[in-house]
Design a protein around this nucleic acid. Structure first.
Lengths: 221, 221
DNA sequence: CCAAAAGTGTTCGTACTACACCCATGC
DNA sequence: GCATGGGTGTAGTACGAACACTTTTGG
């Protein structure tokens, strides 16, 4: 079946930058798909059906490609440069998301071997203009880390303050003083001790914390 | 001539929120056009041709509808709610701009009587989802006033500190202390005295200032 | 001389910065 | 007992907030 218009219409896609902090580094989830004009890894993306909302398209892509649900998802920016897809004019409404990498489930629709994390500092050559999209997403993330509580969205159910500090350091690109970071994050009253401890080697075990209101992202400062 | 695709494609438009501070109030430029599905005023918008970049579409719309050139223009967000245009699926890539209202020229393409400024606090009923777009733009503007030098983009060639303070107060929605505001804005080293004075009634004339680097918008704080 | 807006400093509190040592554990 | 990361307090500084009176002009 064909669809006809009186003037040219672009395709609209939702592309998603999936961030996680893994192995003490900010990483991005990239996918290698067959049937694309580039033989390269790239972001998760899909054409947005005319019967779905943009946010819904992004959510479905996130679910089907990465097995992620109920994660923080924010529209980033729209990229529409002529020629970004050599096949036709494509307007890409980009989103970004933050997740603890443990939440990633093997997905139904995708061969797991084609989905891989890459450190932001060691990205391979990327399909389309996805390098540019990731660059913009990284800037937005770094900025929002400073003035919102978005950083907590990287965390698992339970985490130590050192793990949280690493997340802040990796996502902002700044190193932080341990004492000052702890004072600051505790003063925000966003996390609480669980009472449990986490022993991870030949040293004093760390207190475990949880997020008081995990779904909430607020503007602070 | 017709254009045919194997699956439905949406139309993509660029919609522009044009802000100015006039009569001591934040205002938005709205347009009433014939041939639209709503008999209401709305934002300046146009279908983005498949051979033009998104930014370029926005610039042309700004130029042809409002006679504005060389103004600060920033992509805001993309709105694509199903049904936002009752005729077909439309993805609107929204932009916003800031201008001194004196820069507005009578435009060639539009009947001047159909272009009008409205105070943000006294908006009429609006076409499409333009009320929502303006709401988002207003939030973004207020936020950026706090951490960037975007506010100077509202100013004319020469202006007084009182005028500038009114711009900041109207765009952020906060009232400011005169002495603190002056200390702050001067400490940024963004503006300089022109040496001239501006006499406007039965009171002491105000010093006129100019922007040192008018095209520049920086992140501060 | 009166009304109106322009211009100008100081004090206080708070929030960020810098900085070094003891603690609990596994091996 | 030693290596490893976990945990803690204080002092200095810089920035934002509060606050009131004098100056210059037009009428």
């Amino acid at each position: 079946m064909n669809y006809t218009y009186q003037y040219p219409h672009p395709a609209v896609t939702t592309d998603i930058v999936i961030f996680s902090v893994r192995d003490n580094a900010l990483q991005v989830l990239l996918i290698k798909r067959g049937g694309e004009p580039f033989k390269l890894v790239g972001l998760a993306w899909r054409i947005c059906s005319h019967r779905r909302e943009l946010d819904e398209c992004a959510k479905r892509e996130l679910h089907e490609e990465a097995g992620l649900e109920d994660v923080y998802l924010e529209q980033l920016y729209s990229f529409g440069k002529i020629g970004r897809d050599p096949r036709e004019r494509v307007i890409s409404v980009a989103y970004f998301t933050l997740t603890p990498s443990e939440h990633l489930k093997p997905s139904a629709g995708t061969d797991a071997s084609d989905v891989k994390w890459f450190a932001i500092s060691e990205l391979p050559e990327l399909a389309f203009d996805h390098a540019e999209i990731i660059r913009v997403a990284r800037e937005r993330l770094a900025a929002k880390m400073e003035y919102s509580t978005i950083g907590l969205q990287f965390m698992n159910e339970e985490f130590t303050l050192s793990q949280l500090q690493i997340v802040y350091e990796q996502a902002t690109g700044k190193t932080l003083d341990k004492r000052n970071f702890r004072k600051w994050i505790l003063s925000l009253d966003l996390i609480a001790e669980t009472g449990k401890k986490f022993a991870a080697g030949a040293h004093r075990p760390a207190m475990l914390y949880r997020i008081k209101d995990p779904d909430r992202v607020d503007i602070i400062r």
